[in-house]
Design a protein around this nucleic acid. Sequence first.
DNA 1: CAGATGTTCATGCATTTGCATGTATCGAGG
DNA 2: CCTCGATACATGCAAATGCATGAACATCTG
Lengths: 156, 156
Amino acid sequence: MAAEGKEAPSRLAAETWESLFRAQVAVMRKLQAGKAFKNVAINEYDVLFTLSRCPSGWLRLNELNDHVLLSQSSLSRLVERLEKRGLVVRQPAPDDGRGVLLKLTEEGAALQKEIGREHVRDISSLVVPALTAAEQKELQRLTDKLRNSVGAKPLK
Amino acid sequence: MAAEGKEAPSRLAAETWESLFRAQVAVMRKLQAGKAFKNVAINEYDVLFTLSRCPSGWLRLNELNDHVLLSQSSLSRLVERLEKRGLVVRQPAPDDGRGVLLKLTEEGAALQKEIGREHVRDISSLVVPALTAAEQKELQRLTDKLRNSVGAKPLK
DNA sequence: CAGATGTTCATGCATTTGCATGTATCGAGG
DNA sequence: CCTCGATACATGCAAATGCATGAACATCTG
């Protein structure tokens, strides 16, 4: 073998990321077209979904921000819109005067569940025919590992 | 085993997608922060990159659109901006009076290479410590399989 | 405790995005 | 050839986004 040095590893890494990214684009494109996101943008749903997963029900705005691909100011305004629509409520954080806590309203929780069911159907229709159960588990393991290594913070 | 019916498969699929999506968000967040994207947005770079990979050099706007997560009108304007900056050139498609062909200029190709080098470094620094070479290959295989199944069109 | 520095969230403003629509061209029938 | 529906791209306009900044609070340091 020739003097490949350290070219190969970074090439493999770049190709791996490229594949992951393109798969995400391809799937996301289909999901966005689904009727689940006719009235609620995908970023908005993502916030509702994340809140629905939160054990305590309340989540800090900055923790939410780590989870979502939006700038801080965009998230601030997205949440403002959700509040105006009556889907979430804000509350000043008790232990930190700067912070803001968020929670789903009843209506927000109901809407999340409704869209969620549709969304899961859409996802299944894309993923199930593509990969066996074992492959899905392996893909999940690898992407979780990547995310943890890159430095994702767990939700509280 | 109880009456799990067809809940389990769709649950696994949804969790798999969730993991893939979150990993993408986590990595993308880091990449966007890199200095590679100080002057060129990531979507803009993606267009330059895709053009650089195109064997013939010329690519139809609608083919490009399948590859990128942008609406048709947004892509139209993104390309307009790239043209104004002298990074790409447009040409009416010879075989289809409606179509538009795109090509990198010398300057565009040079900029893509420059940013690309930085970008590959950033990717490596995130992916290499996270996954072994074998894991990266497997992740690439699985995401390619998913993308192909979902219906990605190959570039010409 | 006072001051300096950092963190959290909101807001003004310019840019980017998407939806709806318009224009031009293509392709299939009659 | 002509009409009809479909496709490719551009554009008006409202909405969403990001950057820079500001205000309020937290934390650290001496």
